[in-house]
Amino acid sequence: MDSFNAVIQVLDSTIRLSVPLLLACLAGLYSERAGIFDIGLEGKMLVGAFAGASAAAVFHSALIGLGTAVLISVAFALVHGFASITHRGNQIVSGVAINFIAAGSTIILGQAWFSQGGRTPALQPGERFEAIIWPGADAIKDVPVIGPIYAELISGHSILVYFAFAMVPFTWWVLFRTRFGLRMRAVGENPAAVDTAGISVAWLRYRALICTGILTGVAGAYLSMVQNGGFVKDMTAGKGYIALAALIFAKWKPVNAMFACLLFGFLDAASIRLQGSPLPLVGKVPAQLMQALPYVLTVILLAGFIGKAVPPRAGGVPYVKER
């Protein structure tokens, strides 16, 4: 029974840890499917986290916090669009720039506004998103097997967790069942064809980037208003890059993205849980190996040793009308 509880706990933290990855990964999916590389996911999440926690602390409302997070994150996404769509700049350079501006400005502004060493004030109840207890969770908690699964895994998360997982089928539906999704995929594969059909490539790509901004904003808000009761400097800690890795691992497909993020979240949860205690069969595994595993797996996948990851064809290439 103890080991069963341990498994439940690891799975529970897997869900919690994979939510920001999932949101960022789906965010990246929108922009990359539209043909815009976005390595600025990290930075957009970071400004989202900062803006969310600051606004929630100042206005004492979690919803205002979430709204601000989304707004600021979208603004950064639009900067990326302005550089890489309107001015046809290098998308990777622009993403790198956004990451730096985000990393620096969140610390500087945080220090100037709250003077707590780059932190924002600790959020009070009501300023952060609380866990939702599903009906009957307490009642069946003691039922073996089903009880803990229902009470720990399914119930007891914040609204943003359910939002993240609901975004998976929703993104699938948008991508493969709507006109916007079809056009977005087309603009990522062959923008000239879309242009010939009389549809604005730039406007389509901007809309995809707005979707990206919304999702990274929610991801940031999750970090600073659910996982942690406030903003801490550099709190994304490379999650944007892991999300990027997950996106490649998922071969740019929404449902795969969910599984990739759950896998990477599980690796994270397991490395926290193990903390140097020996595994059966393999013995003691260094925590650093577990942390590096998502990156190693992605490199192996990219190298084409487990299936082939083919990115959208027009990715990274600015669209020029006159050829």
Partner: peptide
């Protein structure tokens, strides 16, 4: 005291943005 060394990170980002991504603006 209001400005920490992280100001440089912002400047760095802005230089990359304007001298790199927006170099043709």
């Amino acid at each position: 005291p209001a400005i920490s060394r992280d100001m440089i990170v912002i400047i760095q980002g802005l230089v990359i943005l304007f001298a790199g991504a927006l170099e043709h603006m």
